[in-house]
Design a binder for these strands. Structure first.
Lengths: 238, 238
DNA sequence: CGTCGCTTTGATAGCCTTCAAGAAATGTGG
DNA sequence: CCACATTTCTTGAAGGCTATCAAAGCGACG
């Protein structure tokens, strides 16, 4: 299936992201069946591939812990970061389009993911899990769209503020402090994903650090003035 | 369900986009059942809403004919175009995230769409249509991601060329001439979707028209030098 | 024929990219 | 544990591209 080792997974009942995943609406009894269907990856180290572009896509994944990035290679050799994925979020759905992954997924640090094998999906329908999966996919879709709207803004400050705002929402949904963001990605990855140069990203973050809007501590970014960030980002009507 | 009138639909067997939709992998017998599950909208006129932001999202849609745009309203009053949708493409999937549409869908001209009622999905699973739906969703996902990668480019020429390149691919998939693109949207809508000003879009298109790369004829855009466009757009490795 | 909306074209200013170099952090070998 | 090499991040200055403001051309429609 892919490069990573899978094992019988640790159990949805104990999963920290259970409330966000397929298990969300299932009964305790159904959880046991889900445990037989879903496979969790062994803990992956920084830089390890969950799958590579071109691999057969027999499954897609839900992040259980850690953060993954997805990348595509450009014709001139460097890589383009298409997304960052946090616990409870879907990775690799696009592979089901033609049975091959079009991008590669890489762990940004210690991380685990659960494989949802496509061939097993009918068993999940039978459990009544279709609504959960559809909701998970729809949330993914909404998130992707919000990112795209944000990306189409041309000013760097708006893009970065919007990205951080979305990250705050995703972090809050996980039950963590939304003002303390886990950002294990490099400036280069971040810039690539935002479609900016790393110098520009660095400049904007430095400016915000000097004005007390944020505080950066290597791999975590603390939001000191959330409202300042929110007012910089694009506002959508309720 | 929404603002539009639905009627028992015209039959998947006769649908021009049958090969792209849920019906793709179904047997003739199953098609008849699908006809009972899916509802086609009455022909909609330019400007009509398929659904509005805030409406209950009991279904999502597949475009049968024409083109739709989806929009969100910004806090300062104007609208932002989040997508254009051609026959065989999914609209409104994001509504399933919380049961309410977060954006509005509007016909750009005479158009029809088929409603896939979420409550009926188990009946489609039973037909063996789950694989088709997943593939449809995955193609949608892949398309969205390609658009986002394209959008993150900062140069206007690259963004516009990439958008046209994607539109060529989508048009070709429908069985139409990929060098003759249906573009019923206004320059304002196009610019909004691309995250550029309409002046900038106009300038780039004028430049390409003068250099013989394209030819614009009101609502259709003819590509005269596809390679010139492809080389301007972002290249991804195979 | 005139009005109105949409599109095209023009000139200036602001922002981001590019090129370049220095600072900080990370990793490695002694 | 420290010194050194390498990578990553930050800062600076100049140029290019897009946004903005402004106005003219074009088409649709009454």
């Amino acid at each position: 299936m892919s490069l990573i080792s899978l094992r019988h997974h640790e159990g949805c009942a104990l999963c920290p992201t259970r409330g966000l995943c397929i298990a969300r609406d299932l009964s305790e009894a159904s959880l046991g069946v889900l445990d037989e269907i879903v496979a969790t990856s062994l803990p992956m180290a920084k830089g390890e591939y969950l799958y590579r572009a071109g691999d057969a896509a027999d499954a897609w994944y839900v992040v259980r812990s850690g953060v993954y990035k997805t990348i595509v290679d450009t014709a001139d050799g460097d890589e383009y970061v298409t997304g960052f994925y946090y616990p409870g979020e879907i990775v690799g759905l696009e592979g089901a389009a033609d049975g091959r992954f079009g991008e590669s997924a890489i762990a940004l640090g210690s991380a685990t993911a659960c494989a949802v094998v496509i061939a097993n999906l009918p068993r999940i329908w039978a459990l009544g899990g279709d609504r959960s999966i559809l909701r998970l996919i729809a949330e993914h879709e909404r998130n992707e769209k919000a990112l795209r709207v944000n990306m189409s803004q041309s000013r760097a400050e708006v893009r970065i503020a919007g990205f951080l705002k979305l990250l705050m929402e995703r972090t809050g949904r996980l039950g963590f402090d939304p003002t303390c963001l886990a950002m294990p990605m490099s400036r280069t990855d971040l810039a690539s994903h935002l479609g900016l140069t790393l110098e520009c990203v660095s400049r904007v973050l430095s400016r915000w650090r000097r004005s007390g809007v944020i505080d950066t501590d290597r791999s975590t970014l603390r939001i000191l003035k959330p409202d300042a960030l929110r007012s910089t980002a694009l506002h959508l009507a309720a």
